[in-house]
Design a binder for these strands. Structure first.
Lengths: 214, 214
DNA sequence: GATTAAAGCGAACACACGCTCTTTATTATT
DNA sequence: AATAATAAAGAGCGTGTGTTCGCTTTAATC
């Protein structure tokens, strides 16, 4: 009868997820939950009843809780999804010296919360577990987690994360007098590794370390 | 004129703090902020305008933020006060080898957030910044932060925090064959320290390490 | 005792917002 | 093509709730 109706019927689950995601983003941005109308506006639903239906679905899925009658009384069941500390968190990407191109796979094992204000920016940082004893004289032990700042250059003497033929490794970068470089393990038992920039690459600089023992 | 009035005039700051604490507790309990009337009921104020006044004061103190017109639109500026991560946080108490009885003063410099689920319990843990190079061979450098689990006994070979005549220090505990103990620095330049239990005490065992460099 | 400012009370207004009911369009089923 | 089920629209009621205003009490100052 009316041609004001002009919507394509969407999949429930997808719309429901969209509602949930909007709530999540809204809480992160504002610190409190959105109203039903705000959610509708945010996900492109014009009727409050439609949104309300989705909310009730989310409740029955146990993803949110609502208190009847109260305004904006939405609580997220899984509050850990709040990015509350989106900064100050860096991803743990795996273990060094495993023969995989780590940064490519972006296989996030976990997010590490760092103490606030330790670093000015943690945006281009990530963490890696270290396997092996090649850096013990630099006080990096087997099993330690190193914090790495992503960058493609480094000074002589800095401990870097280097890529050698698809294999990542932590070593000290030494610039020789003849202009060439080599990688130096901090353990007398290991030999230096020539660093030829063809298949070698600086992935970042080690700027921190975490060690957790029982 | 009326004898219905029956209140004792309280200090503003105290009442203000009470309002803030109530909001904090409410958000922790419910996941969303309380209404003005709920706050009043919670802290014992009968008029919404009184509560509203305190809220405006909290806003001007930059402890909360409010969006005008919206319901329950209170955001806590310092969201870290939410108990959500009350565990997994340990206090940084100071620097070792400063000649003060550290644990007694309980001088908390900062709270360190540890990655979740690293330790079963962080209840009896604290952190200390290490000064000196006496433990470099155990991969503990000057400036590192050690994580210590409070306990009064330790096995031979464990790295402990010991109290020597009002001075705290990090060393390896060695139990000799004759039943006596000594403290051993992990640096050839330092001599062993006899450990006589009269004025020596085990404060805890080192169970982790953080290193942050620029 | 008079004055003044701070803290609180109580009522009232206005509207944001939860929630329901009915209608319409879309998709699937027979 | 007819029927049923689903997703959304749209209007609307009731009320929870922010916000203001004016008045009272308390406590400090003069």
């Amino acid at each position: 009868m009316k041609d004001t109706y002009q919507f394509t019927k969407a999949n429930v689950d997808e719309t429901c997820d969209a509602v949930y995601d909007y709530i999540l983003a809204y809480v992160n941005a504002n610190g409190y939950a959105p109203s039903v109308r705000e959610i509708g506006r945010g996900v492109g639903l014009k009727s409050t009843s439609t949104v309300y239906g989705h909310l009730k679905r989310l409740v029955s899925q146990n993803r949110i809780e609502m208190t009847e009658g109260k305004r904006r009384a939405i609580r997220l069941v899984d509050e850990s999804e709040l990015t509350e500390a989106a900064h100050d968190e860096i991803p743990l990407l795996g273990t060094v010296t495993a023969g995989v191109p780590i940064l490519a796979t972006e296989n996030i094992e976990a997010m590490l919360k760092l103490p606030q204000e330790t670093y000015a920016s943690t945006e281009d940082m990530f963490a890696l577990r270290v396997r092996g004893d090649s850096m013990v004289d630099a006080a990096i032990l087997d099993g330690d987690i190193v914090l790495v700042r992503k960058q493609s250059t480094a000074d002589s003497g800095e401990i870097i994360l280097a890529l050698l033929e698809d294999e990542a490794t932590v070593k000290t970068l030494i610039r020789n007098d003849d202009g060439r470089c080599h990688l130096q393990a901090e353990n007398a038992a290991y030999a230096d590794i020539p660093f030829e920039s063809e298949d070698c690459k600086i992935l970042g600089v080690v700027c921190g370390l975490l060690r957790f023992r029982v």
